[in-house]
Amino acid sequence: MAPSAKAVKLAIQWVLRLRESGNDPQLSRQCEQWRLAKPEHELAWQRVMHLHQELDLRALPGAGVALQTLEASQRRLQRRQALKLLGGVALVGSAAWLGKDLEPVAGWASDYATATGERLTTRLPDGSLLQLNTRSAVDLAFTPQQRLLRLKHGEMMLTCEGSQPLSVQTRDALLEGFEGRFTVRQDDTCTQVSVGQGKVALHTPGQGSLQWLESGQHWRIDANGAQRLEQLDMDAMAWSEGLIVTRDMRLTDFLAQVSRYRHGYLGCSDDIADLRLSGVFRLEDPEQLLQLLPQTLPVRLRQRTRWWIRLERAA
């Protein structure tokens, strides 16, 4: 069950009031009574608190101003708009990276979703195995006629069971997996598919016939159609084991991948962007992973805050 926009707005208001009151006991009791009044209230409260803690607002510069602005605006804005406003005010000039940290909001109304750095493994009603990578959201639509998952954003891996095809709908295509395993990733520009085992049928808008994707193949699908990728510089399925496995990967591309699993800005100077990296890296602690890079490359880490890290050439 997903809480209504009204319940979420009220939960946001309670968080703001409690914060500004300095933990007033009477107000805390009133908030608790509101939470107990309906299951939807408690669900909205838990989800707002999860986002509040994930953003770690108490440590963000300008958070007090952001909260005041949100409190003044939340009555007239939709839930998503209000939270975007929070991001824009809390870190003026840094909204680009904060925006990606607000993606869990899109998962509130999803059947399965993950936050930044989180991965999820679950069994579907038909026995198939669903694995979600960081910042991903999926809706489930199972009927007697079809088994369908809608990938709203992010990345998933499916290990199919049963004789009926298991379908995945993205912005760019409809995919049908048969007994086997494949990954699907959807970002702002395209859908990427990698087949580990079995076959996947690809249906793209405007094409009359389907296309078969074979085991070991990697494909990119966008508005211009489907294109097979001959070689990847990163193992497309290693994330399901908590790993990034690279093969002669550009440093700037590697950092873009790591940034998916952590909050804040992560980048490098232009003069080291094309340095190449090969190896196996564990995702369980992205900060520790970054500390390893100066041991293998001529780089140093420049860190302003826990949210801002830039790699530069070592002196």
Rank of each mutant, 00 (worst) to 15 (best):
E20Q: 15
P294V: 06
R58M: 03
S167I: 00
D253M: 11
T114M: 06
V258S: 03
Q197S: 10
A5F: 07
R19G: 15
S194L: 04
R228S: 15
V65G: 03
E54Y: 00
L174T: 13
K199M: 13
T170N: 06
W239D: 13
L102F: 15
G198L: 06
V195K: 08
M1W: 14
V168P: 06
T246Y: 03
A96E: 15
R304T: 09
V258D: 10
W34H: 05
L301P: 05
P205T: 09
A44G: 06
A115E: 07
E118R: 01
A141C: 11
F178C: 05
V184I: 03
R247K: 04
G242N: 13
E40L: 08
S209G: 12
A226T: 07
H41G: 06
Q53W: 02
R300S: 11
S73H: 04
Q303W: 00
Q74S: 11
R135I: 04
A11R: 00
M237G: 01
W45R: 02
V193D: 07
H50T: 13
M156T: 11
K152M: 11
Q186H: 09
Q30P: 08
E241K: 14
R310T: 14
L140C: 05
R306T: 01
T204A: 14
L255K: 02
L232T: 14
A141N: 14
W45P: 06
S167D: 04
A238G: 09
V245E: 13
D172P: 01
W219I: 07
G267Q: 05
G99F: 00
Q231T: 12
L18T: 02
E155G: 05
R313Y: 07
P294F: 01
L210F: 07
Q33T: 03
V299I: 12
T159P: 01
E214N: 15
L86T: 03
R247V: 04
G267S: 09
L229T: 01
G87P: 02
S110P: 04
R300L: 10
L232D: 07
T122D: 10
S28K: 13
L129F: 02
R260I: 00
Y261R: 02
T114G: 00
H218N: 09
V15R: 08
V245I: 14
Y265K: 09
A59I: 04
G242Q: 12
L297V: 01
A223N: 13
V195G: 08
D248A: 02
K199C: 13
Q257V: 15
V15Q: 14
L293S: 01
K38I: 02
E230H: 13
G87F: 03
Q207G: 02
R47Y: 04
A72D: 10
F182G: 06
T122K: 01
A59P: 02
P286F: 06
I221P: 03
T143W: 00
D126S: 05
E214D: 15
L10D: 10
P294R: 04
R302S: 13
P144A: 07
T116Q: 08
S278I: 00
Q78S: 14
D101H: 11
G93K: 04
S128V: 05
V258W: 04
S110D: 06
T191Y: 08
S194D: 08
L67R: 10
D187N: 15
R313P: 00
S94Q: 15
R47S: 09
Q231R: 14
W45C: 03
R147I: 09
R123W: 05
P104M: 01
A236H: 05
E20H: 15
A109G: 07
G180T: 06
Q78G: 15
R123T: 12
V89T: 08
E214V: 03
Q217A: 12
